[in-house]
């Protein structure tokens, strides 16, 4: 009885051997697969394909934009580097120019200072000479006056003004030349 029941169970489809090809299950499976494909095609796969394409396009665009940005950055970097190199030369030139200017100024100042010193010295010498001359003159005049006065008293004759001047001049000449 049990055997019959089990055989009937299998035969009826309540329990089917695994290798039995059940047409109803096969049809159900095909219908389910077709339905799933139809639903997913409309609501999933098509939007997914569009989404993946959009994402890929965005990625390609982003990569292209990144490439362009990189190139621009590299160009800017090169320009900056060139500018920096130029700035270094300019700075060197400025320093050299500054040094040259400073040297020129220094030499000019030194020359001016030397010239001024020379002028001062010459002026001092001139002033000394003038003072010397004036002193000698004063000395000669007073000596002559004394001598004239003395001589006048000795000889009893007064020297007039012209004699007096000639005598002074002669005394000065003698004083400066050898006296």
């Amino acid at each position: 009885m049990l055997n019959q029941s089990l055989a009937g169970l299998i035969a009826s489809g309540a329990a089917s051997p695994p290798l039995e090809l059940r047409v109803d299950t096969l049809i159900f499976s095909l219908l389910i697969l077709a339905g799933l494909l139809a639903v997913l095609f409309k609501f999933a796969w098509t939007p997914i394909v569009e989404g993946l394409d959009a994402r890929e396009k965005r990625m390609v665009d982003d990569i292209e934009a990144a490439r362009i940005a990189k190139e621009q950055a590299e160009a800017q970097l090169t320009a900056y580097q060139e500018k920096m190199a130029g700035a270094d030369g300019e700075a060197s030139a400025l320093i050299a120019e500054a040094k040259s200017t400073a040297n020129d100024a220094k030499e000019k100042i030194m020359a001016e200072a030397a010239a001024e010193a020379q002028k001062t010295r010459e002026r001092a010498l001139a002033e000394i000479e003038a003072a010397k001359t004036a002193a000698v003159r004063d000395l000669a005049e007073s000596s002559v006056d004394s001598a004239v006065s003395l001589a006048g008293s000795i000889v009893g004759r007064s020297l007039d003004k012209s004699d007096h001047s000639a005598l002074i001049e002669k005394s000065l000449e003698q004083f400066t030349t050898g006296a």
Binding site: P47, D53, R58
Partner: peptide
């Protein structure tokens, strides 16, 4: 279907 909605706009 929810996954599709999430990535639809890329």
């Amino acid at each position: 279907i929810p996954y599709a909605k999430r990535i639809k706009s890329g």
